[in-house]
Write a protein that binds this DNA or RNA. Structure first.
Length: 688
DNA sequence: AAGGTGACTTAGCAGAAAGGAG
DNA sequence: CTCCTTTCTGCTAAGTCACCTT
C-alpha cells in the first residue's frame, strides 16, 4: 500500500493539485465528514535498485484548517487533532500542541523542554499544503527586539589622539568602541578595513572632531580595549544569582518575542533580535570590510502580519516604516541593510511548519532527480559532441556540477563583494589542464575561491571528450576571461527545468550529497558493529559528503592540545592493558598449578578486566582517528542542509539493507518503527 | 537578453551551554 | 563543586533562483 501511495505523491504534486483546485475546494467542504482523503490507488512498480533513497511518499491524512479563529487557537485545534487518523502512532503521541498551560507553572529549562515536545506533536507533514502560493492565512507576532541603546563609556576610560586624551561625542565614541573591541583581531591591521572604518567613522564625528582627528594611525584605542576586556572578564566572574537573572531575562524576552502564531500554531521565530550596529566583517578579501553597519530603528522596519491579527506595537514614540499583509511571503519583518543595500528578514525557526515543508520538498525533488539522473547524464554526455558551443559548455558545466557538486555560480557585481566563483562563473585562471599527470590521463586541476572564500582545490581525471572541450573553451582567452563564456546560471537552470520539473543546479548538490551518504553508510558499516564503530562509520560517511561539498573549517584553536590529551589517555590505557594482560597470564598459570575453583574464578575475573580495557582502548583509538580525520572538515553544514534525515534514521534503526529499504519508504519514525519493532525500544531514546 | 530585486537557503565562526574529569 | 573541554546555538554573511522591468 505504501508503494501505491508513493507513486502517486510528489511527482504530480503542485501541478496536479493546481489542476484539481476545484476538486480540492470541494473536498475541503467535505472535510468535516471525511478527514481521511486517501489518494486513488495507482499501480505499483517494483523499485529498480536496493531501495536506498527511494521515491517519495506523502501520507497526508488531513487538511489544514482554513478558517481561522484567532481566539480559539488551542481548542479548535485540539478537536480537529482528535479527528485525525494516525494509524502507526502510539497513543501517547496522539496529542496536538497545547501552547503552554501545563508548562506555565514550571519554569526555566523544564518549561522549554515540554514546549519542544508539544511542537513535535503537531504533525504538519500529515496535512495538506497550500496550493495557491500563499504561505499562511493568519500571522500574529510582537515585532522584533531592538539592540540596546548605546551606553557612553565612563569618563575614566580614555581615547587618546596623538598621545593626548580626548573626549568624543557619543556618536563618534560609539563607532570608536566598535573598533576598539576588535583591536586584537587581525582585521584591524588590514588597510581596506582601516580605510573603510575611518571613512565611516568621520561621518559620525562633530565638525570639531573631524578637524582634530585627521589620521587613524594617531588614534589610540587601547584604553578602551582594556576596558572591554575587563568587562567581559567581569561577566565571566559574575555570581550564580546574577547569571541566573540574565538567563531569566533572556527567557522572558524569548517567551514574549520569540514566538508567533501562524495558522493556529505557536511557532518559534528564528531571529527575533535586530542585528546590532557594528563594523561589517565580510569573509575573505571583502572590499567593504570595516564599514559601519548602522543601527536599525523602528522607522526602518517593515512589519508583515495578517490584517485580522493584533499588530505589533513600535517602541514608544516611534513608528514602523510600514505594516503590510502579504501572505505570499514567510517573513515577519524586514529592513534594508546599509552595506550592500540588501534586505534582511525576520523569519521562523527551522522547527516551524513553513521551513520544514520546504526542507522536505527539497529532498523530494532530490528523490525525483534520482529517478531520472541516468537519462540526464546520458543527455549531457551526448551534448559534449554538440555542434553548438553553448550546448557543449552547458554540458561540461553540468558535468562538473554533477560530478564535483559545484555550486551554480551566479555572476556578481565586481568590487562589491569578495572575488569568489562557482561553476558557471569559473574563469580560465581557475583551471589547469594536464594531458598526463603521474599515471593519470586528462587531469583537470581546479583552484578557486568559492562561497565564503573557501578554497576549492581538486585534481581530477576527466573523460577525454570533456578534456578536449575544455581545451577548446580555453582557446584564445586571457586568464581573467570566463571559462564558459556562452553560459550563465539562468541559461543552465532553464535547461534543467526542461529536463525535470523543479530541477535546478543546486538539486544536484542535495542529491549527490544524500546518495553519497547512503552509499558510504552501506559500504562502511556492518550491522553488528559496536556503537563506537558505528559512530566512526557514520562520521566517515558524513565526512565523505563534507569533502564532496567542500565544507571546510579552520582547525579548532585547541586542536593540537586536545589531540595530545587524547594520546596521553590512550598511552595510559595501553599500559593498563598490558598490566591487566600480565595479571591474566599469572592467574592462568596459577590455575594450571592448582586447578581449583578459586583460581578458575580469578582467571575469569582477569579475563573480563582485559576485555573491558580493550574495549575502552578501542573507543579511545576510534575517537582519535575520528578527530584527526575531522581536523579541517566541517560536518555540520551537510548534516543540516544536504543529508536527507530519513537515510540516517533508517540506517540507525535497521540491521539489514532490507530494513533500510522499508524504512526509507516510510515518512515518519512511527512508520519505521513498524518495520523494526525489535530495535525500537533500545534505540528510541538515542535517536533525537 | 540584460539587469535588478526580493525571498529564501546555505555557510563558517564565536560565544554560550553542557558535559565530564578531578 | 570547579575547571576545562566539547558540543550546540545564534548570528549574520553569502550564496541560489525566480520574477520583474527595460
Amino acid at each position: 500500500r505504501d508503494k501505491e501511495k508513493l507513486k502517486h505523491s510528489d511527482g504530480s504534486s503542485d501541478r496536479h493539485r493546481e489542476k484539481h483546485k476545484e476538486k480540492d475546494k470541494d473536498k475541503e467542504k467535505r472535510r468535516e465528514e471525511k478527514v481521511y482523503t486517501s489518494p486513488a490507488a495507482i499501480k505499483s512498480e517494483p523499485e529498480e535498485d536496493n531501495g536506498f533513497y527511494p521515491s517519495p511518499q506523502h501520507n497526508r491524512t488531513s487538511k489544514r484548517e482554513f478558517e481561522y479563529k484567532p481566539k480559539k487557537v488551542k481548542t479548535e485545534h485540539d478537536k480537529k487533532a482528535k479527528k485525525r487518523k494516525h494509524e502507526y502512532e502510539e497513543d501517547e503521541e496522539d496529542e496536538d500542541i497545547k501552547p503552554k498551560k501545563k508548562t506555565k507553572d514550571k519554569k526555566g529549562t523544564e518549561g522549554k523542554k515540554s514546549k519542544k515536545e508539544e511542537e513535535e506533536k503537531w504533525k504538519w507533514w500529515e496535512e495538506e499544503r497550500y496550493t495557491d502560493g500563499s504561505k499562511w492565512r493568519f500571522l500574529e507576532h510582537k515585532g522584533p527586539v531592538f539592540a540596546p541603546p548605546y551606553e557612553p563609556l565612563p569618563d575614566k576610560v580614555r581615547f587618546y589622539y596623538d598621545g593626548k586624551p580626548m573626549k568624543l561625542s557619543a556618536p563618534a565614541e560609539e563607532v570608536a568602541t566598535f573598533f576598539a573591541k576588535m583591536l586584537d583581531h587581525e582585521y584591524t591591521t588590514k588597510d581596506i578595513f582601516r580605510k573603510n572604518f575611518y571613512k565611516d567613522w568621520r561621518k559620525e564625528m562633530t565638525s570639531e572632531e573631524k578637524s582634530k582627528i585627521t589620521d587613524l594611525n594617531k588614534c589610540n584605542f587601547s584604553d578602551m580595549n582594556e576596558y572591554f576586556k575587563a568587562q567581559s572578564e567581569a561577566r565571566k566572574q559574575m555570581s550564580k544569582e546574577e547569571k541566573l537573572k540574565i538567563k531569566e531575562e533572556n527567557e522572558r524576552l524569548l517567551q514574549e518575542y520569540g514566538f508567533c502564531i501562524m495558522d493556529n500554531h505557536k511557532e518559534r521565530i528564528g531571529n527575533f533580535r535586530i542585528e546590532p550596529p557594528g563594523l561589517f566583517r565580510g569573509r575573505g578579501d571583502h572590499p567593504k570590510m570595516g564599514m559601519l553597519k548602522r543601527r536599525i530603528r523602528p522607522e526602518d522596519i517593515i512589519i508583515n502580519c495578517s490584517k485580522d491579527s493584533k499588530h505589533p506595537k513600535p517602541p514608544p514614540g516611534t513608528k514602523w516604516k510600514e505594516v503590510r499583509h502579504d501572505n505570499k511571503v514567510t517573513w515577519l519583518a524586514s529592513w534594508t541593510e546599509n552595506i550592500q543595500g540588501s534586505i534582511k528578514y525576520i523569519m521562523l525557526n527551522p522547527s516551524s511548519r513553513i521551513k520544514g515543508e520546504k526542507d522536505w520538498q527539497k529532498y523530494e525533488t532530490a528523490r525525483r532527480l534520482k529517478k531520472c539522473v541516468d537519462r540526464i547524464r546520458a543527455q549531457y554526455r551526448d551534448d559534449w559532441k554538440s555542434k553548438e558551443m553553448r550546448i557543449r559548455q552547458r554540458a561540461v558545466a553540468l558535468y562538473f556540477i554533477d560530478k564535483l557538486a559545484l555550486r551554480a555560480g551566479n555572476e556578481k557585481e565586481e568590487g562589491e563583494t569578495a572575488d569568489t566563483v562557482g561553476c558557471c562563473s569559473l574563469r580560465v585562471e581557475h583551471i589547469k589542464l594536464y594531458p598526463k599527470l603521474d599515471d593519470q590521463e586528462y587531469v583537470v586541476e581546479f583552484d578557486f575561491l568559492g562561497k565564503d572564500s573557501i578554497r576549492y582545490y581538486n585534481k581530477i581525471p576527466v573523460e577525454k571528450r570533456v578534456f578536449k572541450n575544455l581545451q577548446l573553451f580555453l582557446e584564445n582567452k586571457q586568464p581573467e576571461d570566463d571559462l564558459f563564456d556562452r553560459l550563465n546560471t539562468s541559461i543552465l537552470n532553464k535547461h534543467l527545468q526542461e529536463l525535470m520539473d523543479g530541477l535546478t543546479a543546486k538539486v544536484f548538490r542535495t542529491y549527490n550529497a544524500s546518495i553519497t551518504l547512503q552509499q558510504q553508510l552501506k559500504e562502511l558499516s556492518c550491522s553488528d558493529d559496536s556503537i563506537p564503530a558505528k559512530v566512526l562509520s557514520y562520521n566517515r560517511a558524513n565526512r565523505a559528503v563534507a569533502i564532496l561539498c567542500n565544507h571546510q573549517r579552520a582547525p579548532p584553536k585547541t586542536f593540537e592540545k586536545s589531540m595530545q590529551n587524547l594520546q596521553t589517555k590512550i598511552d595510559e590505557k595501553q599500559n593498563q592493558l598490558s598490566a591487566a594482560r600480565k595479571q591474566l597470564k599469572a592467574a592462568k598459570a596459577d590455575h594450571k598449578a592448582s586447578h581449583d575453583d578459586k583460581s578458575k574464578k580469578a582467571v575469569e575475573v582477569k579475563r573480563k578486566a582485559v576485555q573491558r580495557i580493550e574495549e575502552q582502548l578501542m573507543k579511545l583509538q576510534v575517537q582519535a582517528t575520528d578527530r584527526e580525520e575531522n581536523k579541517q572538515i566541517a560536518l555540520g553544514t551537510s548534516k543540516l542542509n544536504y543529508l536527507d534525515p530519513r537515510i540516517s534514521v533508517a540506517w540507525y534503526l535497521c540491521d539489514t539493507a532490507e530494513d533500510v529499504y522499508l524504512c526509507l519508504s516510510a515518512t515518519s519514525i512511527s512508520d519505521c518503527k513498524g518495520h523494526c519493532r525489535k530495535k525500537k525500544k533500545k534505540k528510541k531514546k538515542d535517536i533525537k
